[in-house]
Design a protein around this nucleic acid. Sequence first.
DNA 1: CCCAACGCTTGATACAAATCAAGGAGAGCG
DNA 2: CGCTCTCCTTGATTTGTATCAAGCGTTGGG
Lengths: 248, 248
Amino acid sequence: MDDRYVAGGLISRCEHCAVRNGAVCGALKPDEIEHLNRIVRRRTVKPGETILSDEEPADFLANIVSGVIKLTKTLSDGRQQIVGLQFAPDFLGRAYGASHRYFAEAATEVELCCFPRAEFEKLLVIYPDLEHRLFERTLRELDAAREWMVLLGRKTAEEKVASFMVMLARRSAIIGCGGKDPQDVARFMMPLTRADIADCLGLTIETVSRQITRLKVQSVVRVLDSRSFLVPSMDRLCAAAGLDSTEI
Amino acid sequence: MDDRYVAGGLISRCEHCAVRNGAVCGALKPDEIEHLNRIVRRRTVKPGETILSDEEPADFLANIVSGVIKLTKTLSDGRQQIVGLQFAPDFLGRAYGASHRYFAEAATEVELCCFPRAEFEKLLVIYPDLEHRLFERTLRELDAAREWMVLLGRKTAEEKVASFMVMLARRSAIIGCGGKDPQDVARFMMPLTRADIADCLGLTIETVSRQITRLKVQSVVRVLDSRSFLVPSMDRLCAAAGLDSTEI
DNA sequence: CCCAACGCTTGATACAAATCAAGGAGAGCG
DNA sequence: CGCTCTCCTTGATTTGTATCAAGCGTTGGG
């Protein structure tokens, strides 16, 4: 199997990941890559399919090669909250304690690079640096979760939707379509349905739709089609999101 | 210095912590305790004082010996959200990356057991198990944050207040005041003001106050005084919190 | 002692977002 | 082609929570 896929984001010589994750993705030695190649298994998941459930223990962990995964929690009466989004080249799964406390569901078509749990835990012993990188990742996930708590608890519907767009633009934008400042113009795809956005933001689909319309009317974003957007000024979008320039 | 205080929750022979944190708190060898005793420094913080700021890098990490610490984030216009509460014997501070992304403020009088950052990072090298325990802790914090996201995004004001009481009762209750089932009667102290509760739950103080009154009228809780509560039936409180028995 | 400050509660009113309801655009299919 | 289905938008109405406002009890200081 191609190193690029073994790589994903966590264990990686993959250029893409190295750029995105900087120091976390230290290069592995050839024999380590070789080792990984032997235990890894590729898998493709269709949109809407469940990848991990909170009921059955997960027997694998995975690098996300492409696509978007929703981590969801659902109350007994059906109210749902998305507690995390994972994009390539994120890492899916918990190293310790096999059981997940939430569902992982494919939001788009997803390609995974799976490590059987038992094998992966052996890796943790063999390559001590691996646990450290997992730890760094978990710290960043915690920061993101806490950032999101501010959004859920204290932002208005318009700020929530704008913040969501900022997050997406930053994570997946094709930046700088001709403008002199690369921050000036960002185009991005929306990998989620309105229902998913609502579950992310603690809103209803109608409110999400209305707020997108409002941002469109104010010319904060241009809606190319319901799944792709253009941001004329990142600063204005950030202002609508209630973020000052100092923030992430 | 007494081992109990060196211990806190993270690095510990402390019985209290061992009970609360189980396997995470492996016993240290006598020379390790000795090593810790040499670098640790005790500190007391008054309610309302800032312990860590997101502006200046933190030069220390700490075990919480007693008291409650709020982790807060504030938007530029002053709206505030509490993104975490830490009780004794939790661990305060980030191992990697000195800068905090939030404020840590004493909610009550707090006693800390501080490790200078430089010394602590040497410890991480000397005792590899230490990083692992920190990692486990971080995973639990992440779970708690995601649990809280469901509350912030999808629960009603009444469910939020009831959930908050469940959390407090579980973390700090004097359980089983005479009832045959230890789950039957729980009494707990409220270490936070109404304003803090509101900032935790994404509500206003007025709404918090009204919902506490509602729970009182429904006899879900008895208000002994504005800072202490009695829960006649944990099951009823959980029902009011929108938690089924299977949940945390 | 009085007075101000603080934390908390309660009431009246306003408003943002939910809910209820209808319809349009596009995809897939017989 | 017509059909259904899903996703999305928009409008009318309701409702839960915020906001504004007043007052109570306790604490601490002059």
